[in-house]
Design a protein around this nucleic acid. Structure first.
Length: 514
RNA sequence: GGGCCGCUAGCUCAUCAGGUAGAGCACCUGCCUUUUAAGCAGGUGGUACCAGGUUCGAGUCCUGGGCGGCUCACCA
């Protein structure tokens, strides 16, 4: 009896699970298939053999079709049966591997009896290996004429319907393997994701960055304003945090003399979930000694135009209704300049009263918002952000928002920080990194005060990080890039769940009741 | 957390005002040696998310719960 069934027995509010692992899941068809599985075994055939030697991928077969047909080459391909059209003594169907789909043609007078008997016990969804030569059908389709076939894995669960496929988003996320089998565009998105990561990595390695790995389990979290997940280490008898950022570790490495480092960091933030937030997500952070944030801006422009060129073949990409030009240089605008544009006046010196007036006149909801910084931030995200469609660097933020960034060289009230915006998304966050240990301690202590005042997301003081800075960190430019959002941008996905293979979901069986 | 919407066969969906659930695909049986949403004939398949309630009778109405989608808020 399946474990899930045992656990759920007697539990109130149990949800019926579609395609469950219970015996009823998959309906009668699953039982038919298990019967066929037994018959296959009775024929002395192992329905789950150990390997298969392919001569060609399906894409390779299609690519070399002329030589393969002309030479009457006996080839071996393998894949999942996606359709079968039986005609008594013959059958057509398609198999699919991860390079493509090809038709096969099988007829009983060209196989030994044994093998055609096996074929009759196969189903859509089974994984097979086929040997044969290529030909073109009357209707012009490239087809493998099967001379021999081998079952490589029996599928006992039916695939979704061939025409509509799997639509239900819940099932698509929960049973991503099925989604990948039947929805080709899903496979395409995740191939692009891989390509994006690879291009980023190559770009960084090509610029002499060193790829490193830093702890996910941290005794003290930091590097961002967010609530962490807490976990427990039994042997040490202590709580640990899942990292919310790897920033403070990477800068320790800069102190240690690694002059350019990066990490693809799985980060975890214990907050709400929506179209652009998953509790675990991927951040690319990179730090370069002797750079400031201006150097980093140039680097980011280069990286994104390289990405778009490698992945999409052009720096002009389409996202929803927007055409976006990622080629450098990008527009650069300070935080207060951007506000000036939308508010029609310089807000740099405006008091709380004036900021509230402006917000109200634009019908911005100010519930729970108090203080000048929060007002500025709110006005910015309501009025400025949505309009930042073409790539734009917003620079020089108010000091209060950025405890890890260096004071602006020309203005003590600002920090040297920028955020790249594309299609209204904030895709990163970068600073001239604060390397004055005494200033850093003062900033941490200011955060600690905010924490005491009830701001849970404020930074805890990280004494070891300050000690590292006390040994001396060179001037450094750093950035964190939200990789999932970049993937959304380049694939046109409108939900982060469409670029994460297994997005966080509540368990199918529902929450544990009393 | 709020609002709206959804949950019916393996999948995609019907079921007008409450009367004991239906189609297509898939599956099973038979026929069919170049088909391709193959075709023809016949057939199987349901705890209508769960639990209560109203009613002679509930997929349908009411209450509570579960899961999801969209959206707003919170949150970087």
């Amino acid at each position: 009896m399946p474990l899930s069934r045992v656990i759920s027995d007697g539990r109130k509010g149990r949800r019926k699970v579609k395609m469950s692992d219970a015996k009823s899941g998959g309906g009668r068809e699953r039982e038919h298939r298990i019967e066929k599985l037994e018959k296959i075994r009775e024929l002395g055939i192992d329905p789950y053999p150990y390997r298969f030697q392919r001569t060609h991928s399906i894409a390779g077969t299609i690519e070399n079709r002329e030589q393969l047909i002309a030479g009457e080459v006996r080839l071996a391909v393998a894949g999942r049966i996606m359709s079968v059209r039986g005609h008594g003594h013959t059958a057509f169907g398609h198999i699919k591997d991860d390079t493509g789909t090809i038709q096969f043609y099988i007829r009983d007078d060209q196989l030994d009896e044994h093998e055609f008997g096996l074929f009759k016990l196969l189903d859509v969804g089974d994984i097979v290996g086929l040997w044969g030569v290529l030909f073109t059908t009357r209707s012009g389709e490239l087809t493998v004429r099967v001379a021999n076939l081998e079952l490589l894995a029996k599928s006992i669960r039916p695939l979704p319907e061939k025409f509509h496929g799997l639509q239900d988003k819940e099932l698509r996320y929960r049973h991503r393997y099925v989604d990948l089998i039947v929805n080709d565009e899903v496979m395409k998105v995740f191939r692009m994701r891989s390509k994006i990561l690879e291009t980023m990595r190559q770009f960084l390695l090509g610029n002499n960055f060193l790829e490193v790995e830093t702890p996910i389990l941290q005794p003290l979290y930091g590097g961002a304003m967010a609530r962490p997940f807490v976990t427990r280490h039994n042997a040490l008898d202590m709580d640990l945090y899942l990292r919310i950022a790897d920033e403070l570790y990477l800068k320790r490495l800069i102190v240690g003399g690694m002059e350019r480092v990066f990490e693809f960091s799985k980060d975890f933030r214990n907050e709400g979930m929506d179209r652009s937030h998953n509790p675990e997500f991927t951040m690319l952070e990179c730090y370069a000694a002797y750079w400031d944030y201006n150097d980093m801006m140039g680097f980011v422009e280069e990286m994104f135009s390289t990405l778009a060129t490698e992945v999409c073949g052009t720096t002009d990409i389409q996202f929803g209704e927007h055409s976006i030009d990622l080629s450098p240089p990008w527009r650069r605008l300070t935080f207060f300049e951007a506000l000036h544009e939308v508010a029609g006046e310089d807000l740099r010196a405006s008091g709380e009263g004036r900021l509230e007036e402006i917000a109200r006149s634009r019908e911005i909801d100010l519930e729970g918002i108090s203080g000048r910084t929060a007002l500025l931030d709110t006005i910015f995200s309501e009025l400025v952000e949505p309009a930042l469609i073409q790539p734009t660097f917003i620079t020089d933020y108010p000091l209060e928002l950025s405890p890890l960034a260096k004071i602006h060289r020309a203005d003590r009230g600002l920090v040297e920080r920028f955020e790249p915006y594309i299609a209204g998304f904030e895709v990163g966050n970068a600073f001239s990194e604060l390397n004055d240990p005494l200033d850093q301690r003062a900033r941490f202590e200011a955060q600690a005060e905010l924490r005491k005042a009830g701001l849970q997301d404020a930074h805890p003081v990280d004494d070891d990080y300050i000690r590292a800075l006390e040994y001396g960190m060179p001037p450094t430019g750093g950035i964190g890039i939200g990789v999932d959002r970049v993937v959304m941008l380049l694939t046109g996905a409108t939900s982060i769940r469409d670029v994460i293979l297994f997005p966080q979901m509540r368990p199918e069986e529902g929450r544990d009741g009393a």
